Lab assay of single mutants.
Amino acid sequence: TLFEALYDYEARTEDDLSFHKGEKFQILNSSEGDWWEVRSLTTGETGYIPSPYLAPV
């Protein structure tokens, strides 16, 4: 399942991933609570992002 960003987000740590509203992601790991490890389909980068900022496509 692909997810889309509902809002912009600016990374706060080196493990976070900055992204823009509308960017699409592949979920790599969603078992860590509200922070999911994802791969951006736009940039190819991986990192953690807050799951409340995402919605299924």
Rank of each mutant, 00 (worst) to 15 (best):
P52G: 15
E32F: 12
E37G: 04
T42V: 11
D16N: 11
L17C: 04
F19S: 02
D16K: 14
T43S: 10
L17F: 14
L6A: 04
E4V: 14
L54H: 03
L54P: 04
R12N: 11
F19P: 00
T46S: 09
G22F: 05
F19T: 04
L41Y: 05
G33R: 11
S51R: 11
S40T: 02
F19K: 00
Y53D: 05
S40P: 00
N29E: 07
A5C: 04
G47Y: 05
G33K: 12
P52W: 15
I27S: 02
L54E: 04
D34T: 11
S30K: 12
A55S: 11
K21R: 10
D16Q: 15
L17H: 03
I49P: 00
D16H: 15
D16A: 15
A5G: 02
E10Q: 12
D8E: 06
E14M: 10
E32H: 13
T43C: 03
L2K: 04
S51Q: 07
R39H: 05
L41I: 11
P50R: 11
L17V: 07
T46A: 07
P52Q: 15
L41T: 07
D34W: 14
E4R: 05
Q26W: 13
Y48A: 03
A55T: 13
P50N: 10
D8K: 03
K21N: 03
P50K: 13
Y7D: 08
L17K: 04
E4L: 08
E23Q: 07
D15F: 15
Y9N: 02
L17S: 02
G44K: 04
Q26R: 07
A11S: 12
I49F: 00
V38Y: 02
T13G: 15
E10M: 11
S18Q: 04
T1C: 15
R39W: 05
A55D: 08
S40L: 05
R12H: 11
S31R: 09
S31N: 11
T13E: 09
P52M: 15
S51V: 10
S40V: 05
H20C: 12
I27Q: 03
D8R: 02
F19M: 08
E4Q: 10
E32R: 15
L2F: 10
W36I: 07
W35V: 11
N29I: 05
E23C: 06
H20E: 08
G22W: 04
E4K: 06
V38G: 06
W36V: 09
